[in-house]
């Protein structure tokens, strides 16, 4: 029972932090500070567990899996927000709404690829990280090709 309660608390903390960031529109804590601090806390926890007599490999795997869970929780809120955005922005907003939808699609792709990269690295599944990295490299080309094709097809329709 204590484990489930801890998971719910962990989930609510991560959800709240990410939702607060999205509501604010910028980072509450700058990522150049937040990421090293989180890595330092993880390393400190591993060192503490190793100092308590727990095997170093098991301690590292456990702490990294907790970090991977945090990344998956933090990817949930932007994914749901992007889904709401895709449902919300209808054709009544005019012809240029495609670019907003393309931006939302870019958010979905970016969240998915970053989650794949970092979760793959943290649970030591390098195939997951490699596919995520390949997908992350392809993302700008895909979005640019879509926007480009929409622009030129719209110009062609105007001429006709």
């Amino acid at each position: 029972m204590l484990v489930e309660i801890s998971v719910v608390v962990y989930m609510l903390v991560v959800f709240g932090f990410v939702a607060w960031n999205i509501k604010k529109g910028s980072f509450l804590i700058d990522p150049s500070i937040l990421v090293p601090v989180l890595i330092f806390i993880g390393a400190l926890a591993v060192a503490l567990l190793a100092f308590m007599g727990i095997d170093f490999g098991i301690a590292t795997t456990t702490i990294m899996k907790i970090g991977a869970a945090g990344i998956l929780f933090s990817g949930t809120i932007p994914m749901v927000a992007a889904g709401i955005g895709l449902l919300r922005f209808g054709d009544e907003y005019g012809i240029n709404i495609f670019y907003a939808r393309n931006h939302i699609g870019g958010v979905v792709d970016c969240v998915a690829s970053l989650v794949m990269i970092f979760v793959g690295l943290l649970i030591v599944r390098l195939d997951l990280a490699a596919v995520g990295f390949f997908f992350f490299m392809l993302l700008p080309f895909t979005s640019n090709a879509l926007a480009n094709s929409y622009y030129y097809s719209y110009q062609r329709r105007i001429k006709q």
């Binding site: 998971v7 962990y10 989930m11 899996k65 998956l72």
Partner: peptide, 10 residues
Amino acid sequence: FAESAFFWSA
């Protein structure tokens, strides 16, 4: 906790 958190988060 790690197993449960990873399962539910995924």
